[in-house]
C-alpha cells in the first residue's frame, strides 16, 4: 500500500468509506446482541436476552434461623446471562433454591434486578416493566385466581386488563375454553373447581392476550399426574403454535419432552447453557445433570 500511487490511495480510501457507510445503513438494532442461535443451519431471531442479572435478598431473623446461617443476605441470582429465540422452548433446570424462580420473577417484572437487565423483544424489564408485561404470559403455582369468580368472569376481567377488544376476547375465549374443556365449568365458581380444573383455568387466563412469549415457573409442581399431563400437552400445543416458551422445572422428563435448549442454574449461577442434544450428548439428562452438579457444587447431601 505504501507503494500505491495517489489515485490508487484515494480509490482505496473511498472504498473503505463506502463500505463503512453501507455497513452503517445495513446495521440492524437487534444486532446489538452479538449471540445468534441457529437451528438446522438457519439463524434464529432472539426474543429474550438476559444480561448479568443479579438479585440479593435480605434474610429475616426467622429465615436466618431456618437456614442456619448468620449471613444477613443471600445471593439468589448471581450474574445470570442467556438468550432465547423465537419459537423455541427454553428450560431452566436446577435444584430448589438455585435461583430459577427469582430469575423468572425478574423477567415477569414482579421483582426488580439489583444489577443487570433483561430484554424481552428488545424491551428492558428495568426501563419499561409495563411494556414487558404486555408481551408475556406468566404462570406460576404461586399465582392464584379469585375463588369467588367464575372462569368466564375472570377471562373477561383479565382480557380487559390486557386491553383485548371484546370481539377478539369472545373468539379467543370460545377457542381456548373449548380446547381445554373449560366451557364445561365456565360458570362454576373457582372455589368449587378441582385442582386440575383450576390449573386449566389458570393456564387459559395466562394467555388471554395471546402473548408470543410465555414464562412458566414450575408449571407441574404439586399437580397430580393427570393435571400434569394437561399442562405438558398445553406446552406442546403452544410450541406447535410457534410460541416462545421459557419454563423452569426440576423434572427431567418434562425437559426432555419439550425443551429445545436448556440452562442449568446452580447456586444462582448459570453453569451451562446449550441445546438439549449438546448437553445430554445422547445420554440421560438426569445423569448429565448430576455430573454437572458434582463438578460445580460438589457432592450433595
Amino acid at each position: 500500500m505504501s507503494r500505491m500511487d495517489p489515485v490508487g490511495k484515494m480509490m482505496y480510501s473511498l472504498g473503505i468509506s463506502m463500505r463503512g457507510i453501507l455497513y452503517f445503513y445495513m446495521w440492524e438494532p437487534e444486532e446489538i446482541f452479538p449471540e445468534k442461535g441457529t437451528k438446522g443451519g438457519k439463524r434464529m431471531e432472539e426474543i429474550l436476552r438476559v444480561e448479568n442479572l443479579r438479585k440479593t435478598f435480605v434474610l429475616s431473623k426467622k429465615q436466618q434461623r431456618l437456614e442456619k446461617t448468620k449471613e444477613k443476605t443471600r445471593k439468589a441470582v448471581d450474574g445470570i446471562s442467556f438468550a432465547s429465540y423465537r419459537g423455541e422452548v427454553f428450560g431452566l433446570l436446577g435444584p430448589n433454591g438455585a435461583g430459577k424462580t427469582t430469575t423468572l420473577r425478574m423477567l415477569a417484572t414482579l421483582i426488580r434486578p439489583d444489577e443487570g437487565d433483561a430484554f424481552i423483544e428488545g424491551i428492558s424489564v428495568r426501563q419499561d416493566p409495563a411494556g414487558v408485561r404486555e408481551r408475556i404470559g406468566f404462570l406460576t403455582s404461586e399465582l392464584k385466581l379469585e375463588e369467588f369468580f367464575t372462569p368466564n368472569y375472570l377471562f373477561d376481567f383479565f382480557s380487559e386488563l390486557h386491553n383485548v377488544d371484546p370481539e377478539t376476547r369472545d373468539r379467543r375465549k370460545k377457542e381456548l375454553f373449548s380446547k381445554f374443556g373449560v366451557d364445561e365449568f365456565a360458570e362454576v365458581k373457582v372455589a368449587d373447581l378441582s385442582t386440575g380444573m383450576k390449573q386449566k383455568v389458570s393456564l387459559v387466563i395466562s394467555i388471554v392476550h395471546d402473548p408470543d412469549i410465555i414464562i412458566f415457573d414450575e408449571p407441574t409442581n404439586g399437580l397430580d399426574v393427570l393435571t400434569a399431563r394437561v399442562v405438558t400437552d398445553f406446552l406442546l400445543d403452544l410450541k406447535k403454535e410457534g410460541k416462545s416458551i421459557l419454563v423452569s422445572t426440576h423434572i427431567f422428563s418434562l425437559v426432555e419432552k419439550i425443551c429445545d435448549r436448556i440452562g442449568i442454574i446452580i447456586n444462582g449461577k448459570m453453569v451451562l447453557c446449550d441445546t438439549l442434544e449438546n448437553v445430554t450428548k445422547g445420554g440421560s439428562l438426569e445423569d448429565r445433570f448430576f455430573e454437572i452438579y458434582r463438578e460445580t457444587a460438589g457432592e450433595w447431601k
Partner: peptide
C-alpha cells in the same frame, strides 16, 4: 386478603399500572 390468597400477584403480572 388478595395478598394472602396470592391473587394480587396475578394482577401484578398484567400490564395494568
Amino acid at each position: 386478603g388478595e395478598k394472602e390468597r396470592g391473587t394480587i400477584a396475578t394482577l401484578l403480572v398484567t400490564p395494568i399500572r
